[in-house]
């Protein structure tokens, strides 16, 4: 019993990793007043570019860097559209998701042809095992990126709540006019949030291709970006609660995998759908008392 709970916890942390990176990135961006629906495509192209860079250079670190850069660049594009031009954030974000996904599929075809088995890395990031041969192994045998994802939560909290940068970021997300009057450059602040958040999303995507799978496949992100956006809402834009949301989703996902392995007589697809349904239900329940960043979705236009 104890064993299986520990195994479950291990799986939960592994599944939570890319969602956490994505959700922390999205939290930063949304707190600055931009909803980035580009996240799903951003994570996909980052997973792809990270994979290709690692394969070309033989260095996983360069791959990870390529993933982070891809994320940052795509979010820079999001900034160009939504911050500088002030375009509708829903449509710009979805457009970026479609564009990035299209580019990933196009480039995959050119580089790998019609390969049916996904190309794999000769060696990928290996899990750390700080407590070998103990009962804790299944919980702590994780990729260093999983630890990094967990560490990113207090880091983002600190950044948002304890630094001048964070204060300014929140200011442009809540009341850009006042922030501007106080001498904060609203545009630059939003761009900085986008680039930093985009890099986090990119790392989340690259985690999947460079660590968890060590390979790239079209369906590698499979809605994880949307889930990240959902847990940000669930978490009321507070990093620690976003962590709770990510763990809730991935916990149910892990449980679902265990049930499936144990041969429960339910169609496994319905179990797969369970975490999505639960997140929708959870959002509906917390929906009454959420505090959306006041300037979310509102482009800022400096008069004069």
């Amino acid at each position: 019993m104890m064993d299986s709970i520990l195994v479950l916890m291990g799986a939960m942390l592994r599944i939570a990793t890319p969602i956490l990176f994505g959700a922390m990135g999205e939290t930063l961006i949304e707190r600055a007043g931009v909803l980035n629906l580009g996240i799903e495509g951003t994570m996909l192209l980052a997973a792809f570019n990270g994979f290709v860079a690692a394969q070309l250079t033989g260095s996983l670190w360069i791959g990870l860097l390529a993933g982070a850069l891809t994320g940052g660049l795509l979010c820079l594009l999001m900034g160009g559209l939504s911050v500088t031009l002030g375009l509708n954030q829903h449509v710009s974000g979805l457009g970026i998701t479609l564009l990035a996904s299209g580019i990933a599929l196009f480039a995959f075809r050119i580089l790998y042809g019609g390969a049916t088995t996904p190309p794999a890395l000769a060696d990928s990031f290996q899990p750390l095992n700080p407590f070998p041969d103990t009962i804790l192994t299944p919980v702590f045998e994780q990729h260093w990126l999983t630890y990094a994802a967990l560490v990113s939560v207090p880091l983002v909290t600190w950044l948002l709540n304890r630094t001048t940068f964070g204060l300014r970021l929140r200011a442009v997300g809540e009341n850009p006019e006042a922030a501007d009057t106080a001498g904060i450059n609203v545009y630059r602040m939003r761009y900085q949030a986008l680039i930093l958040g985009g890099a986090l999303m990119g790392i989340g995507g690259a985690f999947l291709s460079l660590a968890q799978l060590g390979a790239f496949a079209h369906g590698i992100i499979n809605g994880r970006g949307w889930v990240a956006i959902a847990v940000v809402i669930f978490g009321n834009w507070q990093p620690s609660r976003v962590l709770a949301g990510a763990l809730l989703f991935s916990g149910v996902q892990a449980l679902q995998l265990r049930l499936q392995a144990a041969g429960v007589a339910l169609p496994y697809e319905l179990l797969l759908a369970l975490p999505y349904v639960l997140v929708i239900a959870a959002i509906a329940l917390v929906g009454r008392n959420i505090s959306v960043p006041a300037a979310l979705l509102k482009p800022y236009r400096r008069e004069g």
């Binding site: 809605g223 956006i229 999505y276 959002i283 509906a284």
Partner: peptide, 26 residues
Amino acid sequence: LKSWLSVDEVVTTLLLNSVMLFIVSA
């Protein structure tokens, strides 16, 4: 959910796309 509880429709409709694919597959 939108009209009763003001729950953002973007996220719920997006997530239900994933759920529907699972239903079709099932």
